[in-house]
Simulated scan of single mutants.
Amino acid sequence: MINFRLVRHLWLFLAVAEEGHFGRAAKRLGMSQPPLTEQIQVLEQALKVKLFERGRKGATLTPVGAAILPAVRKFAEQLGRLELAVQEAISGSTGVLSIGAISSAMVDTLPALIDELGKRFPQLTVSVTEIDSVEAIPALQRGDIDMAFARLEGDFGPSIGALPLRQDRLAVALPKTHKFAGMPRVRLASLAEEPFVIFARAVSPTYFDSLVATCRAAGFSPRILHEVRTVASQVAFVGCGQGIALIPSSLKKAAPDSVVVRPLKEAVNVITTTVAWSTTRKSPAVEAAIEILSSHLASAVKPRSARRPA
Rank of each mutant, 00 (worst) to 15 (best):
V7N: 12
L10P: 12
W11P: 08
A15S: 15
A15H: 08
V16Q: 10
A17T: 06
H21T: 10
F22R: 15
F22G: 14
R28F: 08
S32Y: 01
Q33D: 13
P35A: 05
L36N: 10
Q41S: 15
Q41R: 15
E44N: 09
A46T: 09
A46E: 05
L47F: 01
L51F: 01
K57F: 00
A59E: 05
A59K: 02
T62R: 01
V64H: 06
G65Q: 01
G65H: 04
A66P: 11
I68V: 07
L69Y: 00
R73V: 07
K74Y: 05
E77G: 09
Q78G: 11
L79E: 15
G92A: 04
G92N: 03
G92L: 02
T94M: 00
V96R: 01
V96H: 01
L97N: 04
L97Y: 00
I99L: 00
G100C: 09
A101W: 04
S104Y: 13
M106S: 04
V107D: 08
D108Q: 12
L110M: 04
P111D: 04
L113S: 11
L113D: 05
D115A: 08
E116C: 06
L117Q: 03
L117I: 10
G118R: 03
K119Y: 11
P122A: 13
P122N: 08
Q123R: 09
L124A: 10
T125G: 03
V126I: 05
S127P: 06
V128Y: 02
E130M: 12
I131E: 06
S133F: 04
S133H: 06
E135W: 04
E135K: 02
A136P: 11
P138T: 13
A139S: 12
A139Q: 00
Q141N: 13
G143T: 12
D144S: 14
A148V: 11
A148K: 03
A150D: 14
L152S: 12
L152I: 09
E153L: 01
D155F: 06
S159Y: 09
I160W: 13
G161S: 12
G161N: 12
L163H: 04
L163E: 03
L165H: 13
R166K: 15
R169W: 13
A173Q: 02
L174D: 09
L174Q: 09
P175L: 08
K176F: 00
T177A: 09
F180A: 06
A181W: 01
A181V: 11
P184G: 08
P184V: 04
A189T: 15
A189Q: 14
A189D: 15
A192S: 03
F199V: 06
A200I: 06
A200M: 04
F208C: 04
L211V: 12
R216G: 07
R216V: 05
P222I: 14
V235T: 06
A236F: 05
V238M: 04
G239P: 14
G241C: 13
I247S: 00
S249H: 05
D257C: 08
P263N: 11
E266F: 13
E266K: 07
E266L: 09
N269L: 14
W277D: 05
K282F: 12
E287Y: 00
E287P: 08
E287G: 02
A300W: 02
A300N: 11
K302R: 07
P303D: 02
S305Q: 00
S305H: 00
P309R: 02
A310R: 07
